[in-house]
């Protein structure tokens, strides 16, 4: 980009870097990208930059005072509760990631390699995708009558005589949080993995089979390496969604567990915006580091 800037500023220095300095096509591209630029600039970039500033502001119960103090970061990072909350959030992210990756891969594998007719494949894929387009909160609270103390699972188990007392940890526990998150987010794993699996050239698998590879070897040495980009994209989705979650943790743990976003939400409801902003900055850095690490494995633009 530095070279490009230079060639505009000093056109005579490198005249052959471009055939047409500003062709119709390039002008059109600029114009066409303006709306996206403006919307993301105003509603994403600007708010985040502002949060970075606000995280250094002072505040009291009523309002914020522009300034440059580190108290928000000192208070946040100096507290044992914050560290525990971050660890707890990362724990949820790791567990949910592992589960969704496992479930998502096998579901996508079944759809891509075992369902033979294209129509059936499309129908089953839609069956998997439709819940994604319905309300997350409704899908979450639908676990309550299933898992609750007098819920479906408990009453069935008691009636069958498997247990004498209802199991208490089914709802309002870390178990319930993980279950609901897996329920909500597995689709984000299925779709990208299915997409990459569908693009694997079937003759590669035949070639492996002809060369004497066992089913296990084909899976391990052919399919899995080729499915990695899809897994990486699914991982980005799942990890960022879990790291950003506050509602699932709040509702499904019944207030007994915490996440960074939930901590932020509580600070926001107390109007402690600078404190929430400091948390936002730390969380954002953490998420961007995770995503950056994953993006080193995969080039998203190539995978679309």
């Amino acid at each position: 980009m530095a070279v490009a800037d230079q060639s505009i500023a000093v056109p005579t220095s490198k005249p052959k870097t471009r055939k047409t300095p500003l062709s119709f096509g390039r002008l059109a591209s600029y114009l066409q990208s303006i709306p996206l630029c403006l919307i993301l600039g105003f509603f994403l970039l600007l708010p985040i930059l502002l949060l970075v500033f606000v995280s250094f502001w002072d505040y009291d119960f009523a309002r914020m005072y522009p300034g440059f103090v580190f108290t928000n970061y000192v208070e946040t990072l100096g507290s044992w509760v914050t560290w525990k909350t971050y660890l707890n959030t990362l724990k949820f992210a790791a567990i949910v990631w592992a589960l969704t990756l496992f479930i998502g891969f096998w579901v996508a594998y079944f759809l891509a390699f075992h369902v033979r007719s294209a129509t059936m494949q499309m129908v089953l894929f839609l069956v998997c995708t439709v819940p994604f387009l319905t309300s997350n909160i409704i899908r979450m609270i639908s676990w309550i009558p299933v898992l609750g103390r007098n819920g479906l699972v408990n009453s069935t188990l008691v009636e069958m005589g498997v247990i004498s007392q209802p199991i208490e940890w089914l709802l309002y526990s870390d178990f319930a949080v993980v279950l609901a998150m897996v329920h909500l987010f597995t689709l984000f794993m299925v779709t990208p993995i299915f997409n990459t699996l569908m693009r694997i050239d079937r003759s590669l698998i035949e070639a492996a089979r002809d060369a004497g590879a066992s089913a296990w070897q084909i899976m391990w040495n052919v399919i899995l390496p080729l499915a990695k980009p899809g897994m990486a994209i699914g991982t980005i989705f799942v990890v960022t969604l879990v790291m950003a979650d506050f509602s699932t943790v709040q509702v499904m743990s019944g207030g007994q567990s915490a996440s960074v976003a939930l901590m932020m939400k509580n600070q926001m409801s107390l109007l402690q915006y600078p404190a929430a902003a400091a948390n936002a900055v730390v969380l954002l850095v953490l998420v961007l580091l995770l995503v950056g690490g994953i993006l080193r494995i995969v080039d998203i633009r190539k995978e679309l």
Partner: peptide, 15 residues
């Protein structure tokens, strides 16, 4: 896509 939703919410609110 990856910026946590609550950060977007807080940022736009404060803006």
């Amino acid at each position: 896509l990856v910026v946590p939703s609550i950060i977007v919410s807080l940022g736009i609110g404060v803006l």
